[in-house]
Design a protein around this nucleic acid. Structure first.
Lengths: 215, 215, 215, 215
DNA sequence: AATGAATGAGGGTTCATTCAT
DNA sequence: AATGAATGAACCCTCATTCAT
C-alpha cells in the first residue's frame, strides 16, 4: 500500500537512453519557461546534447514532449506540497513556502498543458497527476483555512491559475531579470489570500476540474 | 479657423484607409493578448478583414505593428487612469476600478512590447507614452498611499507587471471561460495591495524604467 | 519623303501627360541600365516623380514599358549612327564614334528587349525600328569595310550584341565606377574589328534578324 | 598513414550529402549564368533535384550560395589558366585557349560575386581565390606580353571583366542559339588584345583589386 | 487624367517531422 | 538506439497590378 504501482509494460530503458530522456525533459522544461512552448525542437535537442531524431524517438511529437514535461513538473510540485505539509510549520507559512517553491519548480511550464487541454489534458495520466496535485494543495489550503488564516472563498483552481500566471515568463527573451519580481508578486497574492478577506470576490471558486471543462 | 490642426508631416489618410488601420490595430490587440506577439501576420490581416499587403502598407513589419498597438493600448489605459482619478471616488476604490478597467483594455497586449524592449521599447514615442502612463498610475497610487489605504512598498512597475500577468489569457484557445476568473485574481491582488501590509516583500519596488533595463 | 509619317490615331496627349510620359521613359531607361529590367515599378514611378497608377496608365504593364524604352533607345541610337555617317569623318573613325555614342545612349537598355524577343521583339514597331537601326549601322560598317579599314567577316548583329554585352551594367548595384572601364573594352573590341583580321572567327556573321530567330 | 587528411573542423559529409552539395553548386552555376543571381532558390533546388530545405542546409542563405559557387568557378578557371600555361604552346595561343576555356567554365557566374562585392567579395577566402586567379592569369598575360604578342596597356581586371561581359547570356531564356556567337566575340576581343596596339585606350588598366574597390 | 490604397501571388527562409546510415 | 540529412508546409515580406477617390 502507499506506492503507486507503475504500469510495467514499457521495456526498461538502457541506462544511456534513460539519461538522454531525462536530459531532454530537463532541457525542455527550462526552455518552455524561458522561451515558450514553441521553441524549435532542434534547439531542445541541442540543449539536451542529443541529436534531434533521438528526441523524436523518445517523444514522437511536440505534444508528447509537452505532456511529459508537464507530468514531470506536476509530480515535483506535488512533492513540494507534500513536503510543505509534513514539515509541520504554521499552516499559512506552509502554504507560503509551497507557493514560492512551486514558482521555483517552474509551475509556469504547466501552462501549455492547461491551455491545450484538448490535446493532452484529457489523458488519464494527466488527470491522475492533476488530481494528486489538487489533493496535495487542497490539504495545504484546508489546513490554513481551518486555522482561520486563509480566506474561505477561494479554491485550488484559483491558486494554481493565479500562481501559474504570475510566474509565467514573458514571451520573447526579454526581461531576464524579471524573475526577480516574481516572488514579490506571489507575496502580494499571498497577502490577498489571508483571512479575513478584505473584499468580496466576483465569480466563484474553481477546482482544477473546472479549468479542464470545455465551455 | 475651425479646421482641426493636424501634424502636417503625416498626410491625412483617406477615410477607408483610416478605417482599415483601426481595424488592424484592434485585431492585433486581441490576438497579441490571446496568442502572443508571434501570431502570423496573415492571421491578423484576415481577422481585420484586409489583405495581408494592406497590413504591411500600414505597418512595414511586425515590430512596427507591435509598437503601434502598444502605443494605442498605453494611451487608452492612461485615459482610464485619468478617469478613475478625476471621478473623485474613494482613493482605493479608484485604484480598484482602474485595475479592472486596465484588464478590459487588454493591458496584456503590452506584453510583447515589454518583453521585446530592445526592439521597440526604446523608441522615444514609447518611452514618452510609458512615462505618461506611469505618471497617471502614480497619481492614483499616490493618492491611495497617502490616504493610508495602499501599502507603501510597491511601485508602478509592480502593479503593471502583476496585472499584465494575471490578465494574460492562456496560450492556445483553451479555457475560453477562463476570462471569468481574471477579475477574481485581480481582486485577490488588490486585497494584497491594501495597507497595512500583511508581510514583507522580497526584492525592491520597480518602476517602468526598471522593466526596460537590460540586465 | 524624309520624315517618317506617324500613325495619328493616338489621341494627342495633354501637355502634362506628355511630360509625365517622357519622364517615365527617361527614368526607366536609367534604371534598367543601372539595376536591370526588374526594378520595382513603384520605384520607376517614384524616380519619375509620378504616382504608380500614372505609370500604369501610360504603360499597361512592364512589358509595354520595356518595349517603349527600347524603341526610344533604338531611335536615339539610329540617330547617332546617322550623325556619325553624315559628319563625314574617316570611315573607321565614324564607326568608333558611333560605338562609344551607343554606349552613352545606353544601348544596354536594349538587352531586355532582345532577350525577351518572344514577348515584344516581334512587335511590328520593334521590327521596323530594328531594321532602321540595322540599315544605319550597316551603312557605317559598309563604308568602313569598303575603305579597307573594317574586317569583312562580321555583320551588324555581331557588333550590336558585342557592344551591348560590353556595356551592360553588372547586376546588383556594385561597381558603380565600373562604367569607367566600358570605353576601354569597347576600344579593345574596335581594335579587334580593324582590318586586316588577325585571326579567323568561328561561327558566322549575324544580322539582327538572326538574333530574333527562335532556335 | 594512407588515410587522407581532412581539415578536422569540417566534419566529413556523408556520401549522399556530398553528392547533393555538388549537384546544387552545379545547378546554381548554370542558373546564375543563365538567369542571373536572383533565380528563385526553389528553382535551383528543383534543378539540383533536392528539396529546398536541403539547399538551405548546405547554404544558409543566397549569399552563401553565391559565395561558394564563385569560389568553385574561380578554382576551376585558375586550373584552366595553369593548364594553358604549362602546356607550353605559343604564348598568345595559350592566352587564347584560356579565354575560350574560361567561357566554357562559365566565368560569367562570377558576375554576381563581383557585383555584390560588399556582401561576399570581402570574404578572405574569396580574396585569396581571387588572388590565385589573378596570379595565374597574370602569368599567362606576362608571358604573352614579354614575347611581344600582347599589348602592354591592359591588365588582368580588363581581361576578366571583358570576358565575363561577353560571355554572359542574355537575361531571359531568349537567344538560346546565342551561345554560338560568344566565341566569335571573344575572338574579336583577342584580336584587339594583340600587339601592336591599334589605338590608345581610355582610362587605365585595372586589377581585380580595383574591381573590388568601392567608389 | 492622376493618385493613394488594396490585393493576391510569389520568393526567401525556418521548422516539425521523417528517412537513411 | 542514435544520428545527420532530407523534406514539405508555413510564415514573413515584396511586388505587379487593379481599384476607388
Amino acid at each position: 500500500m502507499g506506492r503507486t504501482t507503475v504500469k510495467s509494460h514499457e521495456p526498461r530503458l538502457r541506462a544511456d537512453a534513460l539519461r538522454n530522456r531525462e536530459r531532454i525533459i530537463s532541457a525542455a522544461r527550462e526552455m518552455f519557461v524561458e522561451q515558450g512552448a514553441d521553441v524549435p525542437m532542434d534547439e531542445v535537442a541541442r540543449r539536451a546534447g542529443v541529436g534531434n531524431a533521438t528526441l523524436y524517438r523518445h517523444f514522437p511529437d511536440r505534444r508528447e514532449l509537452i505532456h511529459r514535461v508537464a507530468l514531470h513538473v506536476m509530480e515535483r510540485i506535488t512533492g513540494q506540497a507534500d513536503s510543505a505539509l509534513t514539515e509541520g510549520a504554521d499552516a499559512f507559512e506552509a502554504l507560503r513556502r509551497f507557493v514560492h517553491a512551486a514558482a521555483d519548480e517552474r509551475i509556469g511550464a504547466l501552462c501549455p498543458l492547461i491551455s491545450q487541454a484538448g490535446d493532452t489534458g484529457d489523458h488519464p495520466e494527466t488527470v491522475e497527476a492533476g488530481e494528486r496535485l489538487e489533493r496535495a494543495i487542497n490539504s495545504l489550503m484546508e489546513r490554513a483555512r481551518s486555522s482561520g488564516q486563509l480566506r474561505p472563498d477561494i479554491a485550488v483552481g484559483d491558486l494554481i491559475v493565479a500562481v501559474t500566471q504570475l510566474t509565467r515568463p514573458l514571451p520573447g527573451d526579454g526581461c531576464a531579470h524579471f524573475d526577480g519580481f516574481v516572488h514579490r508578486h506571489l507575496q502580494l497574492l499571498l497577502d490577498g489570500l489571508r483571512a479575513p478577506a478584505r473584499s468580496e470576490l466576483p465569480g466563484s471558486a474553481a477546482t482544477l476540474e473546472d479549468l479542464r471543462q470545455r465551455p
